[in-house]
């Protein structure tokens, strides 16, 4: 299941390209938010998570919840690449009647999705309920939740943090996608988030701080804490729009949709194959 770091990096670049192309094709926003956590998703899905696309409801599977549901375009590309549904299905993205929108639908509507997130501050609590269930059902699965830094404005995140610590829920791991932005401004200015790591530590969690856009760094940090019997949080320092210099740390890309020429620039930046670019050209012809 696990690939080398360079293989995972190449996979992450390809998925980033597909997210960008999809944003252009379907007019779906939140590109910056998707790109900041794509490396994290690739690392979790290809290096950690035990899931089986042929049996998506397998009781023993590990669970992943994208609590920052507005990064669903990234999750959909990951799930398609994992085989939960066809990549072809994603061509209907955002069209009338499609299941693929700006947020994950319910698990009943789309295999591979664990919870219908999108309203911020729910996913960690749901993940906590799933992690607690493992204890009651005497199962050994792990639960991973990606939370946004802006999402940490929500009080329910901290309700869950306290309850997880008091129950010593050691099979629960949070990755905070700390890209330093939320919709309207810097996340440290809208709300006093700093020092985020110390906040989680004071809530009783085992903490680690990493470069969240470096898969090697994520792997290394995880190997140092994965056996600890406490709820764990990785404060993943990320860049909104990571991987595309003209998008990086520019909050306009929270809502902006790329042009076709910008998609082609991204293909160049991400070293995308000619075959994949040819598909983009076909999509453009079909879109006219």
């Amino acid at each position: 299941m696990s690939g080398s770091i360079s293989e995972l990096e190449a996979l992450s670049r390809l998925i980033k390209y597909k997210i960008i192309r999809n944003s252009w094709y379907s007019g779906t926003p939140h590109l910056g938010s998707c790109l900041s956590c794509t490396d994290i998703l690739v690392w979790i899905y290809w290096d950690l998570l035990k899931v089986n696309h042929l049996d998506p409801k397998d009781q023993t599977r590990d669970r992943f919840l994208l609590s920052k549901g507005h990064a669903a375009p990234a999750l959909f590309q990951v799930l398609a690449k994992k085989g939960f549904f066809s990549e072809k299905d994603l061509e209907h993205y955002g069209k009338d009647g499609s299941i693929f929108g700006e947020h994950p639908p319910t698990p009943e509507h789309l295999p591979g999705v664990e919870a219908a997130t999108g309203s911020l501050g729910h996913g960690l609590s749901i993940g906590l309920g799933i992690a607690l269930s493992a204890k009651l059902l005497k199962m050994g699965y792990q639960v991973f939740v990606v939370v946004g830094d802006g999402e940490c404005n929500e009080g329910a995140v901290w309700e869950a943090a306290m309850m997880a610590a008091s129950n010593q829920v050691e099979n629960l791991t949070v990755v905070v996608d700390y890209n330093k932005w939320q919709a309207t401004g810097r996340s440290n200015e809208v709300f006093q988030l700093a020092s985020l790591r110390e906040k989680w530590a004071s809530f009783g969690w085992l903490t680690s701080e990493v470069d969240g856009n470096c898969i090697g760094d994520l792997k290394k940090a995880w190997s140092e804490i994965d056996s600890e019997q406490k709820p764990k949080v990785l404060i993943a320092n990320t860049i909104k729009g990571a991987g595309i210099p003209f998008m990086e740390d520019d909050n306009n890309w929270h809502y902006r949709i790329p042009t076709y020429d910008e998609v082609l620039s991204c293909a160049d930046i991400l070293s995308i194959t000619k075959e994949e670019i040819a598909i983009t050209e076909i999509m453009r012809q079909g879109r006219k």
Binding site: L132, S133, A160
Partner: peptide, 28 residues
């Protein structure tokens, strides 16, 4: 004893925890 959990004074979290348990096959 394992079937009672005090979720504290945190109702939003409690309701979502219940959702997570129902998703896992329990009857909260």
């Amino acid at each position: 004893p394992t079937q009672v959990i005090n979720c504290g004074i945190a109702e939003q979290n409690m309701m979502s925890v219940a959702a997570g348990m129902a998703l896992s096959g329990l009857k909260p």
